[in-house]
Amino acid sequence: MRLTLRQLQIFLAIAQTGSTSAAADEVNLSQSATSAALNELEHGLEISLFDRIGKRLQLNDNGRLLQPQANQLLDAARVIEQQFSPGFAQSGAGLRLGASTTVGIYVLPAILAKTHSDSMSYPNVTIANTADIAHAVANFDLDLGLIEGPCHQEELYAERWINDELIIVCAPKHPILNAGVEVKVPLKNLRSAQWLLREPGSGTRETVEQALLPHLHHLNCIGEFGNSEAIKYAAAEGLGIACLSRRVVADLLSMRKVVEVKTTLPKLERNFYLIHHRHKILSARLQDFLTSCRKMSASDKSIRTEHKQE
């Protein structure tokens, strides 16, 4: 065999950093050893993997072809090492989870609490917007993603998970409620209202636009925020109106710091998703965690069915 996993690891580090000197710090080697490993890999494959642009190395078409395959091989090797490390079956250590912000803040902690015991370590958790989590899962940087928006990468498997209700909220004294809290606000008033929105790339932003634009045609965005917490408090201060998960605003609703805006719109709902790479090797620990997530989904469906019957 003409290549090694170490060579692939060094190749990926160079692809990420753009130079052998920067990659050397990532893989704990000298710059000369890193350059030698790249030369050996290119010589063994009889191809060039980078275009040399001054001191910078830029992936060429050969390198872009190798990159996902190298990621997949290294991920498989990492899973093998973890599965046979002492105590791994009883530990969450080594499991890399990614969650979009709403899921990460309001849903994931409950799952971790149910799956955790005193003898276990928590998984490593990354919280970012949906697009960033999906990108990391596609690159094998994360083992599993829990996201609140549609997934567009073909290389990812997306499993529909938990249903989530979206509602429109504002401050109790917002002008849009001039006719009263219980009066349904007409669409023309929603079209002229000032909206508080998540940033582009957010699953919430995409879902809100998909739900509202067919009815309102445009949203007059007065401000964009990097997380839903900032939006709900901005709405509570009267800066605008917002469409957010009921989970996110439940606390401020109970304290009457925001109120739900009644409208003539149909009920707004979305789904959370579990995503992993289609070629991901699912370890026993990851399978157990997925099972816990699915149990939570079944419980969520049962609760919603009971509410409907009431």
Results as ranks from 00 to 15, higher is better:
Val103Ser: 10
Leu146Tyr: 02
Glu81Ala: 13
Phe88Asn: 08
Arg191Ser: 11
Ile176Glu: 04
Ala99Asp: 06
Leu156Ile: 01
Ile167Cys: 15
Val137Met: 02
Gln82Tyr: 06
Leu146Asn: 02
Gly145Pro: 01
Asn60Leu: 00
Thr130Gly: 14
Ala89Val: 12
Leu74Asp: 03
Asp61Pro: 01
Ala179Phe: 07
Asn124Arg: 10
Gln67Val: 13
Ala93Cys: 09
Arg52Gln: 13
Thr126Met: 14
Thr101Ile: 14
Pro86Asp: 08
Asn124Thr: 07
Ile127Arg: 15
Val185Pro: 11
Ile176Thr: 04
Ala171Met: 07
Ala136Phe: 08
Val137Lys: 00
Phe140Gln: 04
Gln194Leu: 13
Ile176Ser: 09
Thr115Phe: 00
Glu148Cys: 06
Asn129Gly: 11
Phe88Lys: 07
Leu146Ile: 11
Asn71Phe: 04
Asn163Met: 13
Leu156Met: 02
Ile167Met: 09
Asp143Ser: 05
Gly92Trp: 01
Ala70Tyr: 05
Gln69Ile: 08
Arg52His: 13
Asp51Thr: 12
Tyr157Ser: 15
Pro86Thr: 04
Leu112His: 06
Gly149Trp: 07
Phe84Asn: 14
Ile176Gly: 03
Gln153Pro: 01
Asp118Glu: 10
Arg56Phe: 09
Gln83His: 03
Lys114Glu: 12
Arg96Glu: 06
Ala138Arg: 11
Asn139Val: 04
Val181Ile: 15
Asp143Pro: 10
Ala93Asn: 11
Leu108Gly: 01
Val107Ser: 09
Arg191Val: 02
Ala134Val: 12
Arg96Ile: 00
Asn139Tyr: 02
Thr102Gly: 13
Cys170Asn: 00
Ala134His: 08
Gly145Val: 01
Ala193Glu: 08
Lys114Gly: 09
Glu148Asn: 13
His116Val: 02
Gly87Phe: 01
Gly98Phe: 00
Gly180Ser: 10
Lys184His: 07
Lys173Pro: 00
Val169Gln: 11
Asn178Ser: 11
